[in-house]
C-alpha cells in the first residue's frame, strides 16, 4: 500500500488530496447547512447565509416543530422500534450465525441459502402482503410489535456473525465439548467473548436500518403518538410545514434531532464500521 503511494509524483499526490478534500466538503456541507438552517430565525438562502450570523440565531425552530410533533415521543418510538430490532437480531441472529458456522445439522445448507435469498428479494415486493397480514389480519397497526416484526432479525447481521464464528479455530470447540460443555455454554463462554467486535459491527449495521426506516412504519402507524420520528417528521414535511412561519427552519430542526443520534453513534464507533467485515458479509 505504502509502496504504491510513493510511486505517485508530487503533483499527483496533491491532485488526489484536492479531489478527496473537495469530495469530503461536498459530502459534509449538507450536514453543516442542516444545523445552520435549523438555527436561523429567518431563512437566509444567500451565500452569506451559509455562515452563521449572531443576530439571526435562535432555537425557535426547535420549539416550533416540537409544538406540532412531539420530538421526544418520536425519539422514544424510534428507540423502541430500533431497540426491539437490535435485541432480536443480537439474540436470535447470534444463535442462527452459530448454528450456521459451527454446528452440523441437516438443513444447514438450505438455511444458509434462505439467509442469502431474504437479502435478495426487495422489501417493497413484500410490503403489500405484509401490510395486509400485519395491519389487516393480525390487527397490529399502531403497535410496536407490528413495526418490529418484518425487521426483527437482520439477515446481514446473521451473515456477519456466521463469518466471525467461521474464523474461530474448531479445536477450541472440540476441546470444550470433550470437557462436557453444552452448546449454549460454549456459545456464551467461548464463542461470544471472542467475537465481541462482530457484535458491535452488527449492532451498528442493524441500528441504522430501523432508525432510518420510513416506508414500513409509515404504512403501519396512523396514530401520531405511535410514530417513529422519521415518520412524524415526514408527515410534518408533507402536511404541516407550509403553514408555519419558518417552514425550512422547523423541518431542519427536526432533521437535526433525527440525524444526530445515528451520526454521533457512528462517529464514536466508526472503527467497527470496517470495510472487510461489512463487505464480506454483504458478499456472503
Amino acid at each position: 500500500m505504502s509502496r504504491t503511494s510513493t510511486k505517485l509524483s508530487r503533483p499527483q499526490t496533491i491532485l488526489r488530496a484536492v479531489v478527496l478534500g473537495a469530495g469530503a466538503i461536498l459530502f459534509l456541507f449538507p450536514f453543516y447547512y442542516m444545523v445552520i438552517g435549523s438555527l436561523q430565525l429567518t431563512p437566509d438562502t444567500s451565500v452569506a447565509g451559509a455562515f452563521p450570523s449572531p443576530d439571526n440565531i435562535t432555537t425557535a425552530n426547535y420549539e416550533a416543530i416540537n409544538s406540532r410533533i412531539n420530538l421526544f415521543a418520536g425519539l422514544i418510538n424510534s428507540g423502541i422500534f430500533t431497540g426491539g430490532v437490535v435485541l432480536c437480531t443480537v439474540v436470535f441472529g447470534v444463535l442462527a450465525g452459530y448454528a450456521l458456522a459451527i454446528l452440523k445439522w441437516r438443513g444447514r445448507g438450505a438455511t444458509f441459502a434462505l439467509v442469502l435469498l431474504v437479502q435478495v428479494v426487495p422489501f417493497q415486493l413484500l410490503m403489500i402482503p405484509l401490510y395486509v397480514l400485519i395491519a389487516r389480519n393480525y390487527g397490529l397497526s399502531d403497535n410496536y410489535l407490528g413495526m418490529i416484526l418484518p425487521f426483527a432479525i437482520n439477515s446481514t447481521a446473521v451473515l456477519v456473525f456466521r463469518q466471525y464464528f467461521l474464523q474461530l479455530p474448531r479445536e477450541l470447540f472440540d476441546a470444550a465439548r470433550i470437557d462436557g460443555a453444552g452448546e449454549l455454554t460454549l456459545l456464551r463462554r467461548v464463542a461470544l467473548p471472542l467475537v465481541r467486535p462482530a457484535i458491535v459491527t452488527a449492532v451498528l449495521l442493524t441500528f441504522i436500518g430501523p432508525w432510518n426506516e420510513f416506508l414500513w412504519p409509515f404504512l403501519i402507524t396512523k396514530d401520531a403518538a405511535m410514530q417513529p420520528l422519521a415518520v412524524s417528521l415526514a408527515n410534518y414535511v408533507t402536511n404541516v410545514a407550509a403553514s408555519t412561519a419558518n417552514p425550512y427552519g422547523s423541518v431542519l430542526a427536526g432533521a437535526v434531532v433525527l440525524a444526530a443520534p445515528v451520526v454521533i453513534l457512528f462517529i464514536v464507533f466508526q472503527r467497527y464500521f470496517v470495510s472487510t467485515d461489512v463487505g464480506s458479509a454483504v458478499k456472503g
Binding site: T4, F27, P30, Y33, M34, A230, L233, V262, V263
Partner: peptide, 30 residues
C-alpha cells in the same frame, strides 16, 4: 492510498449513508 486524515475522510464519505433519508431530504429541499 491516503495516509493522513484517513479516519476523517472515511467518516465524511460514510455519514450520508448512515443518516435517515427523511432528514437529508429536508436539507435538499432547502
Amino acid at each position: 492510498k491516503v495516509v493522513h486524515l484517513r479516519t476523517f475522510l472515511r467518516v465524511s464519505y460514510y455519514v450520508p449513508y448512515v443518516t435517515a433519508s427523511v432528514a437529508l431530504v429536508g436539507v435538499w429541499l432547502f
